[in-house]
Design a protein around this nucleic acid. Structure first.
Lengths: 340, 340
DNA sequence: CTCATTCGTCGAACCGGTTCGACGTTGGAT
DNA sequence: ATCCAACGTCGAACCGGTTCGACGAATGAG
């Protein structure tokens, strides 16, 4: 395989001149530049990434840590990954993917061996055990998900509090007085999925303020359990007229549950979910929902990360914590409550 | 950050001795080995991946090319990715992920700049334009999916011909005489998704041999089109008693379609799909299916690739083309046809 | 016409590892 | 006691880039 030494020899110049001709970091005569470029083409030269990384201490690779845990709904995670991966490529970076359950060791490996210029962490928990490792690393980090302590990293997440309020408020306006909220499984929360609390508490508070009854419950992250649970909830609260879903598996299971009970939205029940439009299409979910914007969050995280990597943001400048506002996508599943 | 030079200095030995102490490639006195190991711990030394790659011409990274095309059903692809990624990690390799639509440029970048030791291609088409590039690369390649020309690469795929036969044969034995097969969209086939033909042709042949009527049709890869198409097919062939689904989007849409028509499997219609067990759980699909084994195929591809990378298989030894036998997972959706 | 710049190029050093050949020590065999 | 092999360690070279300082030639100003 061709090296820059061979390019230089073919072009009849020194290695350093060849390097400058390609990088443009010093002025080069038109003649030499052409000869070097011809030699590159002739030999099919591509710089060796390892050698370049060694010389510049820049790899142009971003580490992406995505854990696929048992109680995680995988298709939802994929969209965040694609948002990150595609944006990175647009900015000239490649993605080193870590999917191991042990995110800490993956993170340590990538950072301490200098395989990457920066790190994106997905699905960040309230007390995320990867965070201390990331803070000790010399590479900058960007998170999707809000941890308890944001120091030293850029953070991007959906505004789950506002999402909870918006969901309740929309139904209140239409006259609903009793709602059910289905959250993620209890162990997702225990593991630190604080966003579940954020949405739930804000929804409870909003309901309290407007005198609405809100039954907040947990749901499993897998079939068929979650389907059974939905049925049980509908049985337990027959007078509820609205259903809020902050649980992808529950959302995916809902159509068949409603069908089986002979219920239609919004005629019998108003439904609002919290998932992405892409997710809705994949699972054919006809319910209005708060857009969770995975592609946008992934994009924002990479953008900011690259700004840090490339020094457009100084190492001392304060880090960013940015929330995406929840937007309600109307799929016609919300209406006034049925007369009783 | 610590280098091996500093480790050597702290341990009071030369750089080369430190290197040998860590790699074990030459005999080292117990005393020196201990001192080097202590120095490593004290300094928190981790070898620089770029420098090592430069010296050894081995990166311990595998390139994974996964294209998410418009007409591809993304959640199905994810499982192949995870099979590849997890197996690679078990074998001590990291994954460089390429998700761009332009797989050729991603492939060229990874191979010619020596970022990876080998390549896994997912979703390989009959005439895959990435293949010529892969053959010119010095790194070995493993494919998931069967191309027209297998020279120079290891190939792993489900035995779609046998799958088609098994699907038909199961229903024949139970007395079915008229079946519908829903394949992938026509443009997936045009793009070179030959596996669609392989299953369909084998199914048609098996049906012909046993005097069964088989209506082979294409379906979209997205909702809501595919739902409408399923309805149209059931309308067009009211006397068909079995439904074969070789289309993930159609499989995902089927429950609500059957529900809406008041049909139950297998009482009114026998259904056999072709997707993974994981997929069935994610989408709550109650239909028996041919296991498409994405994790197993990903695992096989990486295993063989690593054997090539590490020289356990010589560069002249013939390449492998291996088919996974279709296994029918019984979810109780197959039964004898209803009496007429 | 001289002198100071600027321009274009080169050689050498460096990034941080690995590996080859050489060399002094030991220990065992004869 | 002598010779040889094995052992343990070191210095130097190398992998393939980038970058700094130097230097000769061309250019422009005074």
């Amino acid at each position: 395989m061709a090296t820059i030494g061979e390019v230089a020899r073919v072009a009849g110049v020194s290695r350093s001149t060849a390097s400058y001709a390609l990088s443009g970091k010093r002025s080069i005569s038109a003649d030499v530049r052409r000869r070097v470029e011809d030699a590159v083409r002739e030999l099919g030269y591509t710089p060796n990434a390892g050698a370049r990384a060694l010389a510049t201490s820049q790899t142009r690779v971003i580490g992406l840590l995505a854990q696929f845990l048992e109680d995680e709904f995988a298709p939802a995670m994929l969209q965040y990954m694609l948002g990150v991966s595609n944006t990175a490529r647009e900015l000239g970076y490649d993605i080193l993917l870590g999917t191991e359950a042990d995110g800490r060791s993956a993170l340590r490996r990538m950072t301490s061996s200098r395989m990457v210029d920066g790190i994106v962490l997905l699905n960040v928990a309230e007390q995320d055990d990867r965070l201390p490792i990331l803070r000790e690393a010399i590479q900058p980090g960007a998170l999707v998900g809000l941890p308890g302590d944001c120091t030293g990293v850029d953070v991007f997440d959906l505004d789950f509090e506002e999402a909870g309020r918006v969901m309740v408020e929309h139904l209140r306006r239409l006259g609903h007085r009793e709602l059910i909220l289905v959250s993620q499984p209890q162990h997702v929360i225990e593991r630190g999925g604080a966003y579940v609390w954020r949405l739930q508490n804000a929804a409870l508070e909003a309901a309290r303020l407007s005198g609405i009854t809100l039954h907040a419950e947990f749901g499993s992250s897998h079939q068929p359990e979650v389907g059974r649970e939905l049925n049980a909830l509908l049985d337990a609260h027959p007078s509820a007229t609205g259903l809020l879903i902050n649980n992808e598996a529950a959302a995916a299971a809902l159509p068949s549950v409603l069908h089986a009970r002979g219920l239609a939205a919004p005629a019998d029940l108003s439904v609002v979910g919290r998932y992405s439009d892409e997710f809705a299409r994949t699972f054919s979910l006809p319910y209005s929902s708060i857009e969770s914007a995975p592609d946008r969050l992934g994009r924002m995280a990479v953008r900011e990360l690259v700004r840090r990597i490339e020094g457009q943001v100084g190492p001392d400048e304060p880090h960013v914590v940015r929330f995406v506002s929840p937007e309600l996508v109307d799929r016609g599943s919300i209406g006034a409550p049925p007369e009783r």
